[in-house]
């Protein structure tokens, strides 16, 4: 496999398009799953994201009494922006937009922005349900963030570098998924959690009338929903770079392998959505701090020892 090279910044215009298409594919898969579960055709499910987009574009935006509109709109628009900023350090085959020396930390920083943004969505509406949703997300974030950080650190330790291209290059012989399964699982669950998705979507769940989504309509709602899929997609793509050897694979070109692996992982995330009951933040906290965090620390320790022994 060739080394990863930075491409002309002009390609940055393409990144949101590719991200959007992948996210749309994820949304379509979700639509298909919903439609099949309700006994409708495959095709009627696949078009759901398109129909929903059209519907939300036609819908009017709302404001509420004494809403903090500025912060609210920032929160709504921010999720998509964060996801797009993440794409800067994600390699697609042999290319990456910005091969910065701290790519792994960059990714982590962007998902910390989600803390602020989700809370702002909940706060801005000045609605009890929305605010409960925002706080639920922070409570959940406190549980997933540390395990996520150590899951991110583990491949970086093995690669002796925080640069994503180095992490990919270090997997030429053996993909990290093979000897870092705990870190991989923790990373994937954290991606699902910060994307506010599936069992970790308690901040937008039906028991609080949609939580952070309670009061948003129209294009604001579209941006939040799209942002969730975009975060899920970038999470899948980053997992490919960290654990699945990036664009490595036989026959096909590297960029195609990246896309294929990303889509497969994204499909797995999307499928997880309806399969499991919700993991409520107060239940998650103990498990995350007492079981998951030591487990992933142990994983980091094992990797560090292996790396130190091999020199």
């Amino acid at each position: 496999m060739n080394d990863i090279v930075e491409v002309n910044p002009g390609w940055a215009l393409l990144a949101p398009v590719v991200l959007g298409l992948l996210a749309l594919a994820g949304a379509a898969l979700n639509g298909i799953l919903v439609a099949r579960a309700e006994g409708r055709s495959f095709r009627s499910g696949a078009v759901i994201p398109v129909l929903e987009t059209a519907r939300l574009m036609r819908q009017r935006r709302r404001t509420t009494v004494a809403a903090d509109v500025l912060l609210w709109r920032i929160g709504c628009a921010g999720l998509v922006v964060t996801a797009v900023l993440k794409t800067a350090v994600i390699p697609v085959g042999p290319w990456v937009l910005a091969d910065i020396p701290v790519g792994v930390v960059w990714f982590n920083t962007m998902d910390v922005f989600v803390w602020a943004l989700v809370w702002l969505i909940g706060w801005g509406a000045n609605s009890a349900h929305a605010l409960v949703g925002g706080y639920r997300f922070l409570a959940q974030a406190v549980s997933y963030e540390l395990p996520l950080m150590f899951a991110l650190v583990t491949p970086a330790v093995a690669a002796h570098s925080l640069r994503v291209s180095d992490v990919v290059a270090a997997q030429q012989e053996l993909w990290f998924i093979v000897w870092m399964p705990i870190a991989f699982v923790v990373f994937c669950l954290s991606v699902v959690a910060f994307s506010n998705w599936g069992p970790f979507a308690t901040s937008a769940s039906a028991d609080i009338a949609g939580g952070i989504l309670t009061e948003v309509s129209g294009v604001d709602r579209l941006l939040i929903l799209a942002g969730r899929y975009a975060l899920l997609t970038t999470g899948a793509a980053f997992a490919v770079a960290l654990f699945f050897g990036g664009g490595a694979g036989p026959l096909l070109p590297g960029w195609l392998w990246t896309l294929v692996k990303t889509l497969l992982l994204l499909a797995a995330f999307v499928t997880l959505r309806h399969r499991l009951p919700a993991v409520r933040p107060e239940r998650l906290a103990e498990v995350a701090w007492i079981i998951v965090l030591p487990a992933v620390l142990l994983q980091t320790l094992v990797v560090s020892i292996v790396v130190a022994v091999r020199g």
Binding site: I100, V102, V105, W106, T109, V112, F113, A116, W119, A141
Partner: peptide
């Protein structure tokens, strides 16, 4: 790079908690 990115990370996280 590292100090810059980590400043952003820490401060955003800190402000999210501080708001609470």
């Amino acid at each position: 790079d590292y100090i810059g990115v980590i400043t952003i990370l820490m401060m955003v996280m800190e402000m999210a908690i501080m708001a609470i």
